[in-house]
Simulated assay, not measured.
Amino acid sequence: MVQQLPTDTTPAIIYPDSDGQPMADNTKQFRWIVVIKENLELLFSNNPDVFVAGDLLWYPVEGDNKLRQAPDAMVVFGRPKGDRGSYKQWEENNIPPQVVFEILSPGNRLKAMAQKYKFYERYGVEEYYVYDPDEVDLIGWLRSGQELDVIEEMNGWVSPRLGIRFQLTSENLEISSPSGERFLSFVELAQLREQERQRAEQEHQRAEQEYQRAEQERQRADEALTQLEQEKQRYQALEALLRERGIDPNQ
């Protein structure tokens, strides 16, 4: 009689790449998500070990596909760049996102934001920023031990991890890179590139004009030199003719 070995019938756990929720509730929220995420990508574009993502599901615990969050933007130091359907922490050397951003919208509820705060605090986020573009209000938390402590003054605050600076005005939030360059929208970046292209074209035209002027000056100098050479040759021919006739041209 052949004895059958028991088989593992435990179904594989699926970790969905989408939670069915929209990325943003309105254009203002979406614009801020894109500006922050894309400028962070640009800031760390030369560092292969910094992963930046927007609206990507983060699963911190293997075996639990209900425990998850999708930060509007997140930054992970120590993980390579590349496309991912979701961020499964156990597949990423168990490194959690160190910095996360959330952009408030009318669809955000106080309970949901409190749940996100507790999630980020529990699973290792070091810096957590929430921006309300309607009220132009920025709140930040910084990890201290096992807790996220509120940052008392956000105006002028510099992120320890990112090195970026936050400046609040009465009308807007400005974020600048460590070199002082302001975070720009895609449209602003395109306009800046066009301005740089136009300046480069103008410089090229000025250089071309200078070259043409210099070439004209060289041609005039060559013509003057040719005339002098011709005068010299005529003078030498005249000297030779005078000597043939017995006349000393130097007297």
Rank of each mutant, 00 (worst) to 15 (best):
E41M: 09
R68F: 09
L42I: 13
D248E: 07
L192R: 15
A73E: 01
I247K: 02
A12P: 13
A24K: 10
I14D: 10
K88W: 00
T10C: 02
R79H: 11
V158Q: 14
N250D: 08
Y120E: 06
K81A: 02
T169H: 12
A112H: 10
V150H: 12
S176F: 09
E231T: 03
I103K: 05
G180V: 11
A200N: 08
E201H: 09
G124Y: 02
A224H: 10
Q167I: 13
Q202E: 15
E153Y: 06
E210A: 13
M74Q: 09
N65V: 00
A221I: 13
R182D: 07
P106S: 02
L168W: 11
A221H: 13
Y59K: 01
Q89N: 03
E41R: 12
S86R: 12
A224R: 15
R245S: 03
V125C: 08
G124R: 02
I36E: 02
A53Y: 04
V158L: 03
T10Q: 10
V61I: 15
D64C: 01
S18P: 05
G85M: 10
R161N: 13
P178A: 08
S144Y: 08
V2Q: 14
F77C: 05
L242F: 03
F51Y: 14
M23P: 02
E147V: 10
G145H: 01
G78R: 07
F44D: 08
L57A: 07
R243C: 00
R109P: 00
V76K: 04
Q205C: 00
Y15N: 02
Y117N: 03
Y123P: 08
G85W: 10
L225H: 13
D222R: 15
R84A: 06
Q29Y: 01
P11I: 09
S45V: 12
R182F: 01
E126V: 08
I33H: 04
Q98K: 11
L56W: 04
